[in-house]
Nucleic acid binder design. Structure first.
Length: 864
RNA sequence: GGGUGAUUAGCUCAGUUGGCUAGAGCAUCUCGUUUACACCGAGGAGGUCAGAGGUUCGAGUCCUCUAUCACCCACCA
């Protein structure tokens, strides 16, 4: 016997265990009904479950369960990411707290320590993923730092290198002096800040800058070639000017990258520390000098400022120049965008460094018989709909990003990651998945840099499908690996990638890039993008404001994973942000409890003597029809990835149709066998969204096997019978009478069925409507608006109405007028489809009938 | 500076290919605890669908512009 209130924490763990024990998460070998495969976006190995994960898990698990119940061979691979930058930062912070640093520790010890740290906390997130009910195949769990993954990453690097797609060069990069590494353009955020804009005299010019501290080595003045103010100066003309440390020889450079409108239209450049300056310097083959060291301190070029921080040096330079009378003015209200590392919010200091890059423009990929660049392949697979993005409007964002895409800097100066498989010896370079064999004397030195996390993540759709033992074998080529891995053969390209729109560039685009290149296949057929989860007021949940955070680890035990899942899914639309808050979760918890009690009630019913699930009554027929309709809606919702519609339809069926009407009607005329059968069928439909409670009830009511492995239901045969009264009529009459009763004090409407066919369901109507079976002595007679029969009220209750009926009448009159206008319109009769016109006429007739009855009612009452 | 999305009841949202007399839940108001459920049931009130034009027999839905909000992208010193 079930408890009165559903207590999720009593069931969820054991249900999850049952699923796992039954191997339900492992894909079936039978592929006759198709294949569905999806990789889980790997959370950080050291992470903790947050609400964003829950959204992702709710969506993916629902789709996975739906497809599995369809009979498809369904594979959902879980995994975790080594999260290079993030983990690296955690360990460095730990070291700092212990008064040491990674250099003292040494690379080997640092990596070992990090590995141990990750091992210790890796299990946590997996256990938390299980709390949400994720039905992923744990036997295939992957980690981006598995030995096989390491080998695969190296293989791809080597292949790209030999295809000329990876090169090494001095470029200006986004250097983070705090983490002592560079980061990619996509990892940089720009924030607006108010800063001083200084104007300095520079010989005959006036320059403006927000960064005086970079100006020590300035020896070029750049103006626009068309600028009339500077037409007297020639390109490459040399001058001598007074500057920070005395007389300096400078060269005039004319370049059209200069904005004549800005400031004085003249600027000095610092190619080592600014991307635009770097470009100009490259164009004109100018000298580039480093001013700021990689740790953010000033270098020797800064003279007396050497060793100062940027801010100290800035102040000092302004002082010096002011003292010399070269400071013209200061604009304190300058809006200036500064670059910060999106991960740790540290300020980015552009630097020139020797780095590894992926060339996105070199036509080196064979794609459908043509030599294409990575950029072109990335475009073509979306344009020819090989890959479909949901929602579609993200196509535009994607294309815009590719149009502006520059070579991808893939080397990082952190130690926790996939080390670049390149070795150097006396000017020689060796690129392979394994170290050089002739390194007996240890002369070869491996490149110290590691790869951008997204380089390995970009392989995720297929690297997860590679046989782990084969993958770790460095003797096999990439092609052999793919051929010999049966999961890859069966499940790639994966059916779907489900992830957040915030990583469309980082991950989705990089996966397309890396996978098309390395396998010759698209990585996935569809991409479903979800949005951010926000607070009720629409703000981002932030760690700095804990009150705004919904913590799944607190919510799940109290409200249940199902309630949280439903709350996340209902109201969700692809590509849009969604809001989550406790009231919403509680609403769906209430729904779960409703379902629970429906089940409890059906369980308590005495067994049906007839023991068959045949359709007998009006409500039987009605509920079967509604169930069939529900199946159509649910299927359509799943197929169009509209899980919100699925959830809404399912909840309203159970609450409105099944509980409020069908079960209430069954209290008059029961059909327990049918009721149970309907509920079992319903549980299947709801299972993908709310797996736990449906499984619990399924087992309690004696469903066959485990619900997770049940077959998806098909519509029932339901023959319309002329014998039964249409339940819609019953419902309308009941609602009318209830409404009258509610309006009157102590009202008890008596229904005179006369010779109406509704007499056959009189008991049902009276019971549902809660009316009297006592005919009043001196009744006031009201014609029912919804049926052709009399409603009798006691005389003392006849003060009823009139407002009520008159309001109703007004509404009907309005409708009548609108319908009539439409039918009088010749253009309408001319152009509207015939069935629409018939419909309008029927509506008008019905409206007129209602008006007649209402008028009669009002008349009858007026007489009293 | 360029781009994308949003704007429907106090709140959160539905509203398919134009057919609407615009729906649901929460909150609110009235009534109700006879053994599935108060995490409940019944009934009611609440909206000129952001604004202005246009297309159409007909616009919440399609088009144009405007306003507000959100987000993304960009090398203005």
């Amino acid at each position: 016997m079930l408890d009165k209130v559903y207590k999720p924490q009593d069931y969820e763990d054991q249900i999850y265990q049952k699923w796992q024990d039954s191997s339900a998460f492992v894909p079936s070998d039978d592929q006759s009904k198709g294949v569905f495969s999806i990789p889980m976006p790997p959370p950080n190995a050291t992470g903790v479950l947050h609400i964003g994960h829950c959204l992702m898990l709710a969506i993916q698990d629902s789709l996975v369960r739906y497809n599995r119940m369809q009979g498809k061979s369904t594979l959902w691979i879980p995994g975790t990411d080594h999260a290079g930058l993030a983990t690296n930062a955690v360990i460095e912070k730990q070291l700092a707290e212990q008064g040491t640093n990674k250099y003292e520790l040494g690379r080997e010890a640092f990596v070992k320590r990090t590995k141990e740290f990750v091992e210790n906390s890796r299990g946590t997130i997996n256990e938390q993923i299980k709390l949400m009910g994720a039905s992923c195949d744990w036997s295939r769990e992957r980690y981006t730092f598995d030995p096989a993954m390491n080998q695969i990453v190296s293989r791809v690097f080597v292949k790209m290198y030999h295809d000329g797609l990876i090169y090494r060069g001095h470029r200006i990069v986004n250097w983070d002096p705090n983490l002592m590494t560079n980061v990619s353009d996509d990892e940089v955020e720009h924030i607006l800040e108010k800063a001083n804009l200084y104007y300095f005299k520079f010989g005959p010019f006036v320059i403006s800058t927000a960064r005086p501290e970079t100006k020590f080595g300035d020896k070029y003045i750049v103006v626009h070639p068309d600028d009339p103010r500077y037409q007297d100066y020639q390109h490459r003309q040399e001058l001598e000017v007074e500057w920070i440390f005395g007389k300096t020889k400078i060269t005039v450079i004319k370049d059209s990258a200069i904005d004549m409108e800005f400031g004085t239209g003249a600027m000095t450049i610092t190619p080592w520390h600014d991307a635009l300056d770097f470009e100009i310097a490259v164009r004109h083959d100018l000298d580039k000098e480093q001013v700021i060291d990689f740790d953010g301190k000033m270098l020797g070029i800064a003279g007396e400022c050497q060793g100062m921080t940027i801010l100290e040096a800035r102040e000092r330079v302004v002082e010096i120049l002011d003292h010399k009378g070269l400071l013209v003015k200061v604009d304190p209200n300058y809006q200036h965008s500064i670059a910060i590392n999106s991960r740790n919010k540290g300020i980015i200091e552009p630097q020139i460094r020797l780095q590894w890059f992926v060339d996105v423009n070199r036509k080196a990929i064979d794609w459908k018989g043509q030599k294409q660049s990575l950029k072109e392949v990335m475009q073509v697979v979306i344009r020819d709909h090989s890959i479909e993005i949901i929602p579609e409007y993200f196509d535009k964002t994607y294309f815009a990003w590719i149009d502006n895409l520059k070579d991808w800097c893939i080397s990082r100066q952190i130690w926790w990651g996939h080390q670049i498989p390149v070795w150097y010896r006396e000017g020689q370079i060796y690129v392979d998945t394994v170290p050089p064999k002739d390194d007996d004397k240890g002369q070869w030195e491996q490149d110290p840099d590691t790869l951008d996390t997204w380089f390995s993540s970009g392989l995720w759709s297929w690297s997860t499908l590679i046989d782990q033992e084969l993958g770790a074998d460095s003797n096999l080529s990439l092609d052999q690996l793919l051929e010999m891995s049966s999961d890859y053969q069966k499940y790639h390209p994966v059916s779907l990638l489900e992830t957040g729109y915030d990583i469309i560039f980082f991950w989705v685009a990089r996966m397309i890039l890396m996978t098309t290149y390395s396998t010759g296949q698209i990585p996935f057929k569809k991409v479903y993008l979800h949005g951010l989860v926000r607070t009720k007021s629409g703000k981002k949940m932030s760690k700095s404001d804990p009150s705004t955070i919904i913590d799944p680890l607190e919510v799940v035990p109290e409200y249940g994973a199902d309630a949280l899942r439903l709350a996340m899914l209902v109201g969700l639309s692809p590509g849009s942000d969604s809001k989550i808050y406790l009231e919403k979760i509680a609403k769906h918890r209430n729904f779960c409890n409703k379902l629970w009690n429906v089940a409890r009630y059906l369980e308590s019913l005495p067994a049906d003597k007839k023991q068959d699930a045949s359709i007998r009554s009006s409500h039987d027929y009605y509920i079967v029809q509604r169930l069939n309709q529900l199946m159509v809606e649910v299927n359509a919702g799943f197929e169009s990835y509209n899980l919100s519609v699925v959830g809404q339809s399912l909840e309203s069926f159970l609450w409105d149709d099944f509980a409020d009407w069908y079960i209430e009607a069954s209290k008059v005329e029961a059909n327990p066998t049918l009721a149970r059968a309907i509920l079992l069928e319903y549980l299947k439909l709801l299972h993908p969204l709310a797996p736990f409670i449906t499984e619990v009830i399924w087992l309690e009511l004696g469903g066959q096997g485990l619900l997770i492995s049940a077959n998806w239901p098909k519509t029932w045969p339901s023959h319309a019978s002329s014998q039964v009264v249409d339940f819609g009529r019953i419902r309308a009459l009941v609602e009318e009478v209830r409404s009258i009763n509610a309006e009157l004090e102590n009202s008890e409407v008596y229904i005179d069925f006369g010779d109406s066919d509704l007499a056959s369901v009189g008991l049902l109507v009276r019971s549902l409507a809660g009316v009297s079976d006592q005919r009043p002595d001196q009744p006031v007679v009201l014609k029912s608006v919804t049926s052709n029969l009399d409603l009798l009220l006691g005389l003392n209750q006849a003060k009823y109405l009139d407002q009520k009926l008159k309001a109703k009448l007004a509404r009907e009159e309005k409708a009548k007028k609108s319908l009539e206008t439409r039918l009088e319109n010749e253009s309408y009769l001319d152009k509207a489809p015939a069935e629409k016109i018939v419909e309008t006429k029927q509506d008008l007739a019905k409206t007129k009938l209602n008006i007649d009855r209402l008028t009669a009612q009002i008349g009858q009452l007026a007489e009293l």
